Simulated scan of single mutants.
Amino acid sequence: MAKGKNQHVVKHQEGWAVRGERNGKVTIVKKTQREAIQIARQTAKNQQSELLIHGRNGQIRQRDSFGNDPFPPKG
C-alpha cells in the first residue's frame, strides 16, 4: 500500500502540472511534461506513492509505483 498521496502529471493551460491526488490545487506548473514528470517522480519516491502520467487527452498513459508492493503480486 502507498503511504503518501499519489502524484498526477496533468495538462494545464500554462503547460503541465503536478497535482497530489484529491488536491483541488496543483502543486507546481512547468512548461514541459518532462519537467513535471521529474518533479512528480521525486515526490512519489519520497512519499512512497504512485506516479500517474496523463496524456493530452486526460487519460492515464503511464504509471509507476514507488510504494511497498507485495511480492509476489496478488491476482
Rank of each mutant, 00 (worst) to 15 (best):
A17L: 04
V26P: 00
V9Q: 11
W16F: 11
K74R: 07
W16Y: 13
G4C: 03
I28E: 15
Q7D: 01
P70K: 01
Q13R: 15
A44T: 03
V9G: 08
K3T: 11
L51H: 11
T43E: 10
I60N: 07
T27E: 13
H54D: 08
A44M: 05
V29Q: 05
R34V: 14
D69R: 06
G4S: 06
A44N: 02
H12L: 02
G4M: 07
V10M: 10
Q13D: 15
D64W: 12
Q48Y: 01
R22D: 12
L52T: 02
A17E: 12
Q59M: 11
R61T: 15
V10D: 07
P73Q: 00
K5G: 04
L51P: 04
P72W: 04
R61N: 09
I60S: 04
K30P: 06
R63S: 14
W16S: 04
A40F: 02
H12V: 07
G67P: 07
A2T: 10
R22G: 01
G15F: 09
P70D: 03
R56E: 15
E50Q: 14
Q33G: 09
A36Y: 04
N23R: 08
G4E: 01
G24A: 05
P70T: 06
K74Q: 08
G20L: 08
N57V: 01
K45T: 08
